[in-house]
Amino acid sequence: MVTDQYQYGDFTTAYAIAQIEGEERRLLKWRDAQVTSARRSAYTTFGVATGLNLLFLILAFHFLGREVAARDRITAQSEEIRALATGLEKRVQERTHELQTSNQELEAFSYSVSHDLRAPLRTIDGFSLALYEDYGDKLDDQGRDYIHRVRNGVQRMGQLIDALLQLSRVTRTDLVREATDLAEVARSVAADLKASDPDRNVRFEIPGTPMLAQADPRLLRIALENLMGNAFKFTAKTPNAVIRFGSYPEDGVNVYFIRDNGAGFDMKYVDRLFTAFQRLHGDRDFKGSGIGLATTLRIVRRHQGRIWAEAKEDQGATFYFTLGS
């Protein structure tokens, strides 16, 4: 039996076609949804990428602006530093010229002191000596004492001039550091002091081993002559005088000292100790110019060191100093 529809199992041809068409519509709908979703994702990605690019450009221009501003500041600062350096160099040249002029004036003054002031002193000393030799027998004891005082004053003035000239030379002379055995210098100074007064009962204690330092030997000898000379002078009334020179390390620096058991001094006057013309003892007790310690202070400072003292009255004094690097 022939009909318009053919049976195949439980399904008819029309039903199968309808199912296929439905599946196609579903697949088309799903594909459209996928295309729409992909389009949205593409638009979103494009938007985000565009935003990020804009943000990157904004940040790039911001940092570029800061970099340009920083370079401008650095350029301005460099110009300012260059101008300051030029001005500083000019001021240094001016100060150097002023210092050279001052040194020349000081040298001229030193020459004047050593010649112009010494001439009348020699005249006074010479005539006072002639007066004593030629007319001393015609003068009484008081007259002869006056002449002695005049001559002592002239000699003291000469010593004061020598001390002032030495102070001036110490300030102006070139500092030449070299390996210097301070113990050897101290022994030489001690020998000179003993020779100046052979009858003195004084013992010097100086290390027999080298005591090396990078220092100017000429200036260090002047410093030790002043310090050890003071110790020698202020132990004059001490029966068993002892003068010791030594050193010890402290904070990576050698500290040198000269210690004596002489007259000492009151520590409340220690601030006056290294000032020129300041003396803690009367001239009648101990002769001196009052310039030796001021000279020593300048020598130590020129070596980038420091100097200080400790003492007790009638129990001696100790002077310490360092010499820098």
Rank of each mutant, 00 (worst) to 15 (best):
M1A: 10
Q5I: 10
Y6Q: 15
Y6W: 13
Y6K: 14
D10I: 14
F11M: 15
T12C: 10
A18S: 09
I20N: 12
G22R: 08
E24Y: 14
R25I: 04
R26H: 07
L28N: 12
L28I: 06
R31D: 12
V35I: 11
T36H: 00
T36S: 06
A38L: 09
R40H: 09
S41P: 00
S41Q: 02
A42P: 04
Y43W: 05
T45P: 00
T50M: 08
G51N: 11
N53Y: 15
F56K: 08
L59T: 14
A60K: 11
F61W: 13
E67I: 14
V68I: 15
A69S: 12
R71S: 12
I74T: 07
Q77H: 14
E79R: 15
L84A: 12
K90S: 10
Q93T: 15
T96H: 09
H97G: 11
E98Y: 09
L99G: 02
L99D: 11
S102W: 10
Q104A: 15
Q104F: 07
L106K: 01
L106G: 07
Y111K: 13
V113M: 13
A119T: 10
A119H: 12
L129V: 06
A130L: 13
L131M: 06
E133S: 13
D134F: 01
D137R: 01
K138Y: 13
L139P: 02
D141Q: 06
Y146K: 14
I147Q: 06
V150M: 12
N152R: 13
Q155S: 11
I161Q: 04
S168R: 02
D174P: 03
E178W: 04
A179I: 02
T180V: 04
D181K: 09
D181E: 04
E184H: 11
V185W: 00
A191S: 09
A191I: 07
S196I: 00
P198D: 06
R200F: 08
N201H: 06
N201C: 02
P210Y: 03
L212R: 07
L212C: 05
P217Y: 04
L219R: 00
R221V: 00
I222M: 01
L227W: 06
G229Q: 05
K233I: 04
F234M: 03
A236T: 02
A236K: 04
K237H: 09
N240A: 15
A241F: 05
A241G: 08
F245R: 01
F245V: 02
Y256N: 03
I258H: 01
R259A: 00
D260K: 07
G262E: 07
A263W: 01
A263V: 05
Y269E: 05
D271F: 06
R272Y: 06
L273A: 00
A276E: 09
D283E: 13
R284H: 11
R284G: 12
F286K: 03
F286A: 05
G288R: 11
G292Q: 06
L297M: 12
I299K: 03
Q304W: 11
I307V: 15
A311I: 08
T318F: 06
Y320T: 10
F321H: 05
T322G: 03
S325Y: 14
S325N: 15
